[in-house]
Each structure stands twice: as structure tokens, then as C-alpha cells.
């Protein structure tokens, strides 16, 4: 007989509902308004380490609402958040699922330091208050110069797993791991941060890069890496670049893996313990 039962207990699902409501209330109270971005769009991202799920004839399931939310900001939308599904091809494990729930929000006029405070405030509401420790990327993995990207990524992943128990903000990522964060005045590091709680990566945020040409340049490097690795080519999202050319206001943004937070809140060990069902 087919196993029709949910993966998560009803208790965990009720707790999820409560955390969703608390997160929304927290943001609304700070005048961050909810937006709804389509999960399915014509273009997706060029990042070589994030693979999109293609829906032939329609485009791609979005790996995050980032580009579309930034188009809203460029059009005059105030600080806003999206709490909804995001999709990543090939990611499946204790802490990964091809479809997951992402809370992403943008704050006009904030830099990454201000946003880190807000992320900590939200986590304190959802999981209860605890102290936060701040570490640089170099504190976590040592000097990155002369080390290959593969070796660094693995060293970073394993070092993060050892950051337990406790809440850690990791900052000052190497400039070549800036993603869409601006480069710090030192020219070597990016205005990017991540939050790791009890060894689990929870959130990733930027003081957003605004310059359209710099975006183009970074997308070009992404595409070259994709080609070298034999990954499918991804078209650059021209609508996103056009919005940047029009002008993105000064802002900071962060994406938070909501299922992982629910997992930590419920003392669960695997995402599947807090998900109603798993697609595959």
C-alpha cells in the first residue's frame, strides 16, 4: 500500500504554522511588506554552484526571488519580503530538498551590519534569545590565498558543521565569493554575511551591489565557469540588468532557509522531520 502519511508529525506542522505567523508579524511590525513573486519565470541565475530546475516551454522554477524582488525595488517598492517556495536541482539530503521554503527580505537604506542585527532579532523571536558571535571567513577556514575553490568550499562546509552549539555570523567573504554583495573598501572582501546556528547554515545576506556593469562582469565569469565545468549554459536575465541600469536603491537583503529554522525550533535532525511531504 502506498505510504500516504506526512513526513512531519502534526505537532511539528503546527509549530511551523506558528513560526510562519511570527515571522510575518515581525516583518510587518517593521513596515516590511509582503510581496508574491512567481515561482516560475523565464530566466534564472547564472551561478555555477546553484542549478535551476527547467520547466520546458515555460522557463525555470526560481532558486530564490532575488532578481524579481530587486526589480520591484527598482520600480519603487519599499522594504519588502517574500516567504515562499524556492527550488534547486540536485539538492537532496538531511538538510536539503529540491523544493524548500525561503524567507527573503530587503531593507532600503540598510547596510549588511544593520541587517545582521535585524536577522538576529528575528531569530531571537522565533527560537528564543541567545548570544551571537561574529567570525570572519578567514577565522573559519584560515587564509584562502593559493587554495583551490573546491578545497575551500569543503573546508568551509566542514568548519561550519563544527560551529556548534551557538549562533555565528560569518562575514568578510573573499571577493570572488561576493555573489551579489558589494566589495568592501579593502578590495579583498565582500559585504556578505551568513548565519550559522548549531552548525547549520541558516541565512545568507548582502549589502547589495548596485552597479549594472559589475553585475554583467560577474555573470560573465559565472558563464565561463559553467562552460569549464560542462554545466548547462544559463541566459543572463536581461530584465534584471535593465532594472539595475534604471537604478536599484541602496539596500541590504538576506535569504533565510525557513525549513531549517523550523527544524531547529522543533529539535528535529532532518528537514524531512518538519516537511509535510517530499516531492521526490
Amino acid at each position: 500500500m502506498s505510504n500516504w502519511r506526512p513526513l512531519a508529525s502534526i505537532e511539528h506542522l503546527k509549530q511551523r504554522a506558528e513560526l510562519l505567523a511570527q515571522a510575518r508579524a515581525f516583518l510587518v511590525a517593521r513596515d516590511v511588506i509582503e510581496v508574491q513573486i512567481p515561482a516560475l519565470a523565464r530566466d534564472s541565475i547564472t551561478e555555477p554552484d546553484v542549478q535551476s530546475i527547467e520547466v520546458p516551454g515555460y522557463g525555470y522554477l526560481q532558486t530564490s526571488p532575488e532578481y524579481q524582488m530587486k526589480r520591484l525595488l527598482a520600480a519603487g517598492m519599499p522594504s519588502c519580503y517574500q516567504l515562499g517556495p524556492a527550488f534547486r536541482h540536485g539538492e537532496q539530503g538531511m538538510l536539503h530538498n529540491p523544493e524548500f521554503t525561503m524567507l527573503e527580505w530587503y531593507r532600503l537604506g540598510f547596510d549588511h551590519n544593520q541587517l545582521m542585527h535585524e536577522v538576529a532579532d528575528l531569530v531571537d523571536v522565533l527560537l528564543g534569545p541567545k548570544p551571537y558571535q561574529r567570525l570572519t571567513y578567514e577565522d573559519v577556514v584560515g587564509k584562502s590565498k593559493g587554495r583551490g575553490r573546491d578545497a575551500l568550499d569543503l573546508a568551509f562546509a566542514e568548519a561550519c558543521e563544527r560551529l556548534t552549539p551557538g549562533r555565528f555570523f560569518i562575514t568578510d567573504y573573499p571577493a570572488d565569493q561576493a555573489a551579489l554583495a558589494r566589495i568592501n573598501p579593502d578590495g579583498q572582501t565582500a559585504a556578505r554575511f551568513e548565519l550559522v546556528i548549531d552548525g547549520i547554515e541558516i541565512a545568507n545576506g548582502y549589502w547589495e551591489l548596485l552597479d549594472a556593469d559589475e553585475h554583467r562582469q560577474r555573470f560573465k565569469i559565472d558563464s565561463e565557469i559553467r562552460q569549464q565545468r560542462g554545466l548547462p549554459a544559463m541566459a543572463v536575465d536581461e530584465a534584471f540588468l535593465a532594472a539595475l541600469e534604471h537604478g536599484l536603491p541602496e539596500c541590504a537583503g538576506v535569504a533565510l532557509g525557513f525549513d531549517r529554522l523550523v527544524m531547529l525550533g522543533g529539535g528535529a535532525k532532518a528537514l524531512s522531520d518538519v516537511m509535510a511531504f517530499r516531492g521526490s
Binding site: E47, D49, V50, G90, E91, Q92, G93, M94, L95, H96, R149, D150, L152, D153, L154, F156, A157, E158, C160, Q177, A179, E194, E201, N204, G257
Partner: peptide, 12 residues
């Protein structure tokens, strides 16, 4: 077999 991947990094 455990899947390990930083959000912005390589998968292992």
C-alpha cells in the same frame, strides 16, 4: 551517503 553543500558553494 551525506549531501554537503554550502548555499553558494560546491556540492559534495
Amino acid at each position: 551517503n551525506e549531501f554537503v553543500k554550502p548555499g553558494k558553494g560546491q556540492a559534495f
